[in-house]
Amino acid sequence: MIPVDVLLGIAFFFQTGIGVQGNLFLIYLFSFLFLTGQRLRPIDLILTQLAVANSLLLLSTGVVEGLAALGLKNVLDDIGCKIVFYLHRVGRGLSLSATCLLSGFQAIIISPHKPRWINLKARIPRYIMPSILLSWIFNMLQNVVILVKLKGPRGTGNTSEMKEYLYCSVNVTTSISESLHALVISLPDAICMTFISFTTCYKVYLLYKHHKRVQQVHTDNFSNRAFPETRATQMILLLVGTFLTFYLLNSILTGCMHSMTLKPWMLHGSIFLAACFPMVSPFVLIKSDPQIVKYYSAVQDRKIPHTE
């Protein structure tokens, strides 16, 4: 029978390899089309941001977690621990921010064509890039504390003040400072999750109203013209639903970690769950968004020389 640690290591390497390939495919596809002057949808910029964040999250911890699961815990020194955990937290925050922005953007796009929404719909594409830049700045500044508190597995100082996390340790001086740090980290996440949940419910409500309206109309052509964003909205709902599922499971396990004696399987499981959405999301997009397939076909046509 294969030992559990070996299975964990294989799972982390598999998760990282598959997820990075899917996200890099999207980054390459959108970048190629942008650089060749192709017209992209405003939402594609958010999807590119999401793919970059997911790749950063997977690459920052996937390989190291796999090695740690196989028993190689001292693979990082102080600087390595700081960089890996910092990039992991920044990537996780960017992934959450991009999902939040994506859900809000789609909610505005499919909102009823009323005067108060029309002007906002026209201006919203101009706010996407500033929003992405602000999310990078915020997440990079928010996690600066990791560069101060995190140490290597053999960190110096009073061992009673060090909390071990497999191959790294964190300096926790008092329970008050630990609770304050947890509050600072979790509050933006809670706000984003509340916003995502609200916009998701709003979109479900709009889709339900559209479905009831279509049932009263027996002409298929009218139904297709009446709500052309329906398919894209369903894609976003599937993506957001996947995100919420993995995030809630990870949050439950993280809560158990803080309320119980920390065990290695808890930390491995928490990090594995945190990386499930970055692994799955590009394939959800490729499968559910027909425009991505059209983009890929356009790229292939440009690469293949046409013979007379």
Score class of each variant (00 low, 15 high):
Tyr167Met: 15
Thr194Gly: 15
Ala53Val: 11
Arg41Asp: 14
Ile191His: 09
Leu141Phe: 15
Leu26Pro: 02
Glu161Lys: 12
His268Glu: 10
Ile132Thr: 01
His181Thr: 09
Arg154Phe: 05
Leu262Ile: 13
Lys263Arg: 14
Ser60Lys: 09
Ile185Glu: 13
Asp78Lys: 14
Pro290Asn: 02
Val145Arg: 11
Asn171Trp: 14
Gly17Gln: 05
Lys263Tyr: 07
Tyr28Asp: 01
Ala53Cys: 11
Arg92Ile: 04
Ser179Phe: 13
Ala51Arg: 13
Lys303Asp: 07
His210Ser: 13
Asp301Leu: 08
Phe222Asp: 04
Ile109Thr: 04
Val204Gly: 09
Phe227Gly: 00
Ser31Lys: 01
His211Phe: 12
Gln234Ala: 04
Leu57Ile: 02
Leu47Ile: 13
Pro278Ile: 03
His211Glu: 09
Thr61Trp: 12
Ser251Ile: 05
His181Glu: 13
Ile132Leu: 03
Ala232Asn: 03
Gly62Lys: 12
Leu50Ala: 13
Gly155Ser: 12
Val217His: 08
Phe138Leu: 00
Val240Cys: 09
Leu29Asn: 01
Phe85Ser: 15
Leu94Lys: 02
Pro305His: 00
Leu262Trp: 06
Thr230Leu: 07
Met266Ala: 07
Leu120Glu: 08
Gly104Phe: 02
Tyr28Ile: 01
Gln15Lys: 11
Lys294Glu: 14
Ser197Leu: 15
Gly19Phe: 00
Gly152Cys: 07
Ile43Tyr: 08
Lys114Thr: 15
Phe222Lys: 03
Ile176Lys: 03
Arg154Ala: 04
Val284Ser: 01
Gln216Gly: 14
Ser281Val: 00
Leu56Pro: 06
Ala68His: 04
Thr200Arg: 10
Leu72Ser: 08
Ser97Pro: 07
Leu56Glu: 09
Leu94Ala: 02
Asp301Ile: 06
Val170Asp: 00
Ser223Asp: 04
Ile191Glu: 06
Phe12Asn: 07
His258Asp: 08
Asn158Arg: 12
Met279Val: 09
Thr199Pro: 04
Asn119Lys: 14
Ala274Gln: 11
